[in-house]
Design a protein around this nucleic acid. Structure first.
Length: 298
DNA sequence: AACTTCCGCAACCGCATACCT
DNA sequence: GAGGTATGCGGTTGCGGAAGT
């Protein structure tokens, strides 16, 4: 992978970092009365120096080492794992690399319409709880979702001249994008938003059914409904969303989704100004405007 | 072609929480 | 319960490549 071959951390930079750490350590050693916790930190730094801890992009060799070690010994206990595997990385770095990139079930490529829809919906419900959101997108990491949100969704919020957390933008998501994404999903669009056949094809969003909970990493599941794991006080309309079996049978179906699909008939916008905005906008668009690609070009 | 700007994303950092002794 | 350590989480950074000039 190209990213792992990037050279963000040069040897020179490492030298500078090490020197800075060494300087700090020396300074502390000249202060016998320094706090004990500082001494502990210094010891840790000294150990790091001895190990010549690496930072920056992972190399292919490092990836192989980590993968092979985990294949043999399993994951967890990351600090000792890093040492035992002979990796000059922090346990934290190893964990991140494994979870976000090397894990065999990690899914790469563009988000499918289903996934985008789910992200928009869950974010509107939970905010920046990336990890919690990621638990409901098998194979996707919190980091990836977070990046998606920051680079794509926030960009569109900017284009709408509103904040991604504003009521106006949430209305736009709820009543414009999400219904259309649901439409796209019903039409079987399981590719990325840009219409290309990325890995989302081969590793596309699995069709979630009431028995698909095994594919989730946590004990939370969709059993009994899309938001079955949501706390009662987080439910919307009593939590009567439900995932419909089959790739082309839609994302959610209930009164609220009916509202989403026909916003003009319900006018539930939090931001009254958006009603006119939506109507004016809708009147001026072409018939094929609402392709996935176009939605994201808005 | 050369340069600049923008964008996507991997990786890092600091803090919070869980777990262990 | 206190203290130490490990792990998880969310925000931020900065590199590389694409797009624009």
């Amino acid at each position: 992978m190209a990213a792992s071959q990037r050279s963000r951390s040069t040897a020179a930079q490492l030298d500078v970092d090490d020197q800075a750490a060494a300087d700090q350590l020396m300074t502390m050693m000249r202060r016998p009365a320094a706090a004990l916790q500082d001494e502990a930190a210094a010891e840790e730094e000294a150990a790091d120096l001895q190990l010549e801890l690496r930072r920056g992009p992972w190399t292919v060799d490092e990836d192989l080492t980590l993968v092979n070690y985990i294949a043999d010994h399993g994951e967890g206990r990351w600090n000792s794992l890093a040492r035992a595997a002979g990796l000059k990385r922090t346990g934290k770095s190893c964990r991140l690399r494994w979870l976000n990139y090397l894990r065999p079930d990690v899914k790469r490529g563009n988000f499918t319409a289903d996934e985008q829809l789910l992200i928009l919906d869950l974010h509107s419900r939970w905010g920046n709880r990336w990890s919690k959101i990621a638990q409901h997108l098998p194979g996707r990491t919190d980091n990836e979702i977070k990046n998606y949100w920051r680079t794509r969704v926030q960009k569109h919020a900017k284009q709408l001249n509103c904040d991604a957390n504003s009521a106006r933008f949430k209305d736009a998501m709820r009543y414009l994008w999400m219904p259309r994404l649901a439409d796209a999903s019903q039409l079987g669009d399981h590719h990325g938003y840009n219409g290309t056949t990325a890995m989302g094809d081969a590793h596309g969003m699995p069709v979630m059914t009431s028995s698909s909970s095994d594919s989730f990493a946590t004990s939370e599941s969709y059993d009994g409904g899309l938001y079955a794991n949501v706390q009662d006080n987080e439910m919307v309309n009593g939590g009567d969303y439900y995932w419909m079996q089959g790739a082309n049978q839609g994302f959610c179906s209930n009164y609220e989704s009916e509202q989403q699909l026909h916003p003009h008939e319900h006018s539930q916008f939090q931001d009254p100004d958006l009603v006119g905005w939506v109507q004016g906008f809708s009147e001026g668009i072409s018939e094929n405007f609402w392709s996935l690609e176009d939605i994201w070009k808005m």
